[in-house]
Structures are given as C-alpha cells and as structure tokens.
Design a protein around this nucleic acid. Structure first.
Length: 151
DNA sequence: GCCAACGTTGGC
DNA sequence: GCCAACGTTGGC
C-alpha cells in the first residue's frame, strides 16, 4: 500500500467534482518524475487531493487509485491542451491513472496547517519550489493529515 | 501581478 | 554534455 498526493487547480478540476463524478482519468501530467510516480501507483492506493493555485491552497479530501497506469489518450489529440506531437503511438510517452472519490474531510486542511504540523516537516510538497503534481507521501504523513482533516 | 524555483530546450 | 534562455508553476 502506497500513499500519494495529487495536485489540481480547483478551477480546472476540484475535489467536489470528483465527488460528483465518482471517478476521473488523471490525464495531462507532462512531467517525467510525476509520470513515473503514477506508473508506480497501484489500485487501492490512497491519494491526498490537493487544491493549488487558488484562494486557499490545501488538502480537500482523500481519493483512491481505481485504475493503474495506462496510456494517456490526450497526448495524441491534436486539439487537446495536452497534445504532444513528439509522442509516438508505438511508444507513448505519457501515462495516466484513474482516481476515485474516497472520503471528504470534516475540514479543509490548509497550507498553513500543513506547515505548522511537526510530522510533516519533511513533506515534498512543502519544500520551496516543488512543482511536482504527483508525489509520494509516507504512511506517517498520510495519517497526520487525515488527523488534521477529521478534527 | 510579482517573482522564485525548477524543468526543458536547443545551440554549440 | 554544458549552459543560457525560456516557459511554467504556484504561493503570496
């Protein structure tokens, strides 16, 4: 069992939308490190859903990996924002996973909350300049954040 | 809207 | 393989 953190801009796709839809293919990741993390994710892994680039950045709730990595179709769609003309169908560059709604927190865990939590001092997402949209989270970090969310 | 941090690109 | 230029991310 592994834990992950995935970022989304709520203007693009919010946790609320995931709750309504149930599942969502996590397409459009165009960073090799983030892609490799998605390839390492397994069905059932839990995901902290982070809202970025918004008035109150932070963790909105918990999602779950519902499909392991598969070829991201948007890389071949010429009209897509995520079109990658250099990707070959015989050897696709980009993968995505499918995520499912899992659980809403009782309260939004804000970035200042995360920074104030001693157990999260080493978290990748809190390091200056970290822009990875998919990062691994330790079990300890995951539990600490769930604790904050259920307060 | 500013700006720091970082990844990617491409010339050499 | 180096590195400057550029684009993007994301908090503030």
């Amino acid at each position: 069992m592994h834990y992950w953190l995935m970022k989304s801009e709520p203007d693009e796709f919010s946790f609320e939308q995931l709750r309504t839809r149930g599942t969502e293919p996590w397409t459009g990741v165009r960073n090799y490190q983030a892609r490799n993390f998605m390839r390492a994710a397994a069905v059932g892994d839990l995901v902290l859903f982070y809202h970025s680039n918004c008035p109150e950045p932070g963790i909105a709730g918990v999602a779950k990996i519902s499909k392991a990595a598969f070829t991201d179709p948007t890389q071949f769609e010429a009209k897509s924002d995520y079109y990658d003309p250099k990707s070959q169908r015989a050897d696709p560059r980009w993968s995505c996973v499918e995520v499912a709604f899992h659980q809403t927190f009782k309260r939004h865990v804000t970035l200042p909350d995360l920074r104030a939590c001693q157990a999260l001092a080493e978290m990748l997402i809190l390091r200056p300049g970290n822009r990875l949209s998919v990062t691994p989270v330790t079990a300890t970090e995951f539990k600490a954040i769930c604790g904050l969310g259920q307060k």
